[in-house]
Design a protein around this nucleic acid. Structure first.
Lengths: 247, 247
DNA sequence: CGCTCAATTGACGCGCATCAAGAGTAGTGG
DNA sequence: CCACTACTCTTGATGCGCGTCAATTGAGCG
């Protein structure tokens, strides 16, 4: 994938503010950034945002890049990952509609962000967002509580990576996706798997082969069904949850 | 260890505000909470704090407990951990002087906090701290940036747990302690190891035996020296760092 | 000195990685 | 529409790193 010039707005997939998907963006941002903001505050926020549509497997920024923007996903899916020098990869998180990413330190972003599917993003510069934070104290609260939420999830993932078996890891992953689907108002008994086996493996600290074998095993034991690639049916949610928690 | 009544102030190790170590607490809090607060703001903060001295291996709160306080370590060492139902444990972090802990969600604390060594703590109720956050916006900024710092560290630890070998894990751990010592103004070539091998193992997603063997191996290869229990000398910082990063 | 518990060391086994082959699956162009 | 290509995914055979089990050594403490 040649690096298209997204940051410089020359990418031909970039949509402008008048495009149809921007209305959708407004809706989604209600969920994410602005759930408890007033109409005026939402409008003020809208003045500093920028919208873009990106293809699949598109690198949004790399670990170490200067931190200049915060991103909000309108729709699509994004993965965040860190690399070791020899290419070993750890996926930090999968993000979907309504999720925010782009926090970092003065050393730059601490992970690489890449689209999984074609994705619509909203983007805010840190500079403009900072001045907004002065204006709207509740926005700061909201950013804080989202960072705490991410922190709690990261700690849960540390338990998974350090102490769970392959079977428990995959079960936990499916439960996570199911809970996520529930929050988005989707059915919990069937989850979409837009990411590849390689992505799942790098998220769970396993290899592609082990992930594949574990899926097969869970299917054989009737925990799940795999009707089509990219989809998974959870036959017994409770049993899968117990498996995920090592019971 | 019988559970002493710390929360009800009946613990005989609890020190009051006039005790000598409280002056120390003021100094340390300069580093932690209040680095950029005014004298008045620091004094205001002092009105809502409560101080306690705890013995080693003392459980401060448990995963799932109602979130009512935020804690700041004056001196000593604390470990945070999560448990699976069958007893498998993952240590989320080791905390030292100046560190803050006690964030959580409405579901309660998401980890258990336990002292490693005898420890002096400052404690703030969430309720009082919340009202302070209204008064002192900069305090909210500070809490936010500390949550981000924790998040970045958690993501780095995910890379360690998911993708590093035992040798790389132990090397990374020693480098972490060394960098921490540097920030505290201590020499980087020698680090204190107040925690047990079991704690180190549960932090790195290994067993006691593997940690022990890896220390022995690093010593044999002259990366480190182990002059006395609880101490480790880093003979070649750069080489250890390269090892930690998988080079 | 002797008790207790942490740490080390050794022997062995297992879960997951590695290596390798085969079976879908999707995109491409004639 | 089908062949061709390039993947991704699955499945099998084998190996290794780390876990498990067990015994010994060492350190702190009354």
């Amino acid at each position: 994938m040649p690096p298209l010039d997204f940051e410089g707005h020359k990418l031909d997939h970039v949509a402008d503010l008048k495009s149809p998907q921007c209305r959708n963006c407004d809706i989604v941002r209600e969920i994410a950034f602005c759930a408890d903001l007033s109409q005026d505050e939402v409008k003020r926020l809208a003045t500093v945002r920028c919208h873009a549509a990106l293809p699949a497997s598109y690198t949004i920024f790399r670990e170490g890049d200067v931190v200049d923007h915060v991103y909000s996903i309108s729709n699509g899916a994004v993965k965040l990952y860190k690399l070791l020098s020899d290419g070993r990869r750890q996926i930090i998180g999968f993000l979907f509609s309504g999720d925010i990413f782009g926090l970092g330190t003065h050393d730059g972003y601490c992970y690489t962000a890449e689209t999984i599917t074609p994705t619509h993003l909203c983007r805010f510069t840190h500079r403009k967002l900072d001045s907004l934070l002065e204006e709207i104290p509740r926005l700061e609260r909201r950013m804080f509580s989202m960072a705490v939420k991410d922190l709690v999830a990261a700690q849960e993932q540390m338990l998974l990576l350090g102490r769970k078996t392959a079977k428990e890891k995959v079960a936990t992953f499916l439960i996570q996706l199911s809970l996520r689907a529930e929050k988005a108002g989707m059915p919990t008994s069937s989850v979409a798997l837009p990411m590849s086996r390689a992505d799942i493996a790098d998220y769970l600290g396993l290899t592609i082969e082990t992930v594949s074998r574990t899926f097969t095993q869970l299917k054989r034991d009737n925990y799940i069904g795999l009707p089509a690639s990219g989809h998974c049916v959870l036959n017994d949610w409770r049993a899968l949850k117990d498996l995920a928690e090592g019971a």
